Simulated assay, not measured.
Amino acid sequence: MSTKDEKAGGSPESRLLEVDDLHVEFRSREETAHVLNGVSYHVDAGETLAVLGESGSGKSVTAQTVMGILDTPPGHVTGGSIRYRGEEMLSATEQRRRELRGENTAMIFQDALSALNPVFTVGFQIAEQFRFRRGMSRKDAMAKAVEMLDMVQIPNAGQRVKEFPHQFSGGMRQRAMIAMSLALDPDLLIADEPTTALDVTVQAQIMDLLDELRRERDMGLVLITHDLGVVAEVADRIVVMYAGRIMEQADAHSLYSQPGHPYTEGLMESIPRLDMKGHELASIKGLPPNPSDTPPGCPFHPRCHRAEDECREKRPELHDLGAGRLSACHFAEELISRD
């Protein structure tokens, strides 16, 4: 059995994070938006789980709920479970969740420029964690900050710690964010669109860096993105989300070679290829549904070229296709059994 096959199943001992049947609503005076509708996945030590989907599919909301930073109005967790190493997080005290954030779980946010405080130097923001969590002196904490910037391959780290976020390029800011997230050596890292707005060369560097750090630390990595090309080489398993639900879950090879859901199929067909020169790029017609007014049946059926009456009337459950594959499509078996 290959390493990736072993990771696809995992074991209770290696399991870092378990999200089970998670439901989240955003409430206003006018309406209630059901942004997560029964999301379930797990992450093991040393594994990279990629979470794919269009903007608004619930990827970031799931991550923020896991981190415990989306449990105040207008966000409301209405059901489900989040367990870190078997410990239930949704019922934990705020003090306990603060202890876990940074020490055990950490998150790289989508926009590094917004996530970093513009009025403090990058070094101060990294060193602050060592001072308050490790009790280090100001001098020792700053030395650790230099060490962290050097670890993420920022040149001349001893000088760069004294600079402010706006003095860093986009790629360097993202590296600084990674350094800040890894400062306390967490077991689980959630990277929310870590390559957004970066050029292709820098994207590759950031992805290589994350993968290298994951292997060195045996760290679980949740990689949130809408870019299928970014995760093709680094993901062990992939979860595809749409309208706050999981449409498909599979190991990377199976999902890329034979999608088990029409939505995944549409995403794959929209990837530009060298042999398509001169041809119109395929796209999924229409828009994702409004979370406050999701259609009956399969939420993807208004955009699905394979939809039949059953899809419009009956919502498909996420069911097991074998070999660690899951799909929420009435015709999943037909899709993956095609020649």
Rank of each mutant, 00 (worst) to 15 (best):
Met1Tyr: 12
Thr3Glu: 14
Thr3Phe: 10
Glu6Met: 15
Lys7Pro: 02
Ser11Met: 10
Val19Tyr: 05
Leu22Val: 09
Arg27Pro: 04
Ala33Cys: 11
Leu36Met: 14
Gly38Val: 08
Glu47Asp: 11
Leu49Gln: 12
Lys59Trp: 04
Val61Pro: 08
Val66Ser: 06
Val66Gln: 04
Gly75Ile: 01
Leu90Ala: 04
Arg96Phe: 08
Leu100Ile: 13
Glu103Ala: 14
Asn104Met: 07
Ala106Cys: 11
Met107His: 13
Phe109Val: 03
Gln110Asn: 10
Pro118Thr: 02
Val122Gln: 00
Ala127Pro: 06
Glu128His: 02
Glu128Trp: 00
Lys144Phe: 03
Ala145Glu: 01
Val152Cys: 06
Ala157Gln: 07
Ala157His: 07
Phe164Arg: 00
His166Val: 07
Phe168Asn: 00
Asp185Leu: 03
Leu188Gln: 05
Glu193Ile: 05
Val200Tyr: 04
Gln205Tyr: 13
Leu221Gln: 06
Val222Asp: 10
Leu228Val: 01
Val231Trp: 00
Val231Met: 03
Met247Arg: 02
Glu248Gly: 00
Gln249Met: 15
Gln249Thr: 14
Ala252Cys: 14
Leu255Trp: 04
Leu255Glu: 03
Gln258Pro: 03
Gly260Lys: 00
Leu267Thr: 02
Pro272Ser: 09
Leu274Tyr: 03
Glu280Phe: 05
Lys285Ile: 09
Gly286Ala: 14
Pro291Gln: 09
Ser292Met: 05
Pro296Glu: 15
Pro296Asp: 15
Cys304Met: 13
Cys304Ile: 12
His305Lys: 14
Arg306Leu: 15
Cys311Asp: 04
Arg315Met: 13
Ala323Leu: 09
Gly324Pro: 13
Leu326His: 05
Cys329Gln: 00
Ile336Asp: 02
Ser337Ile: 08
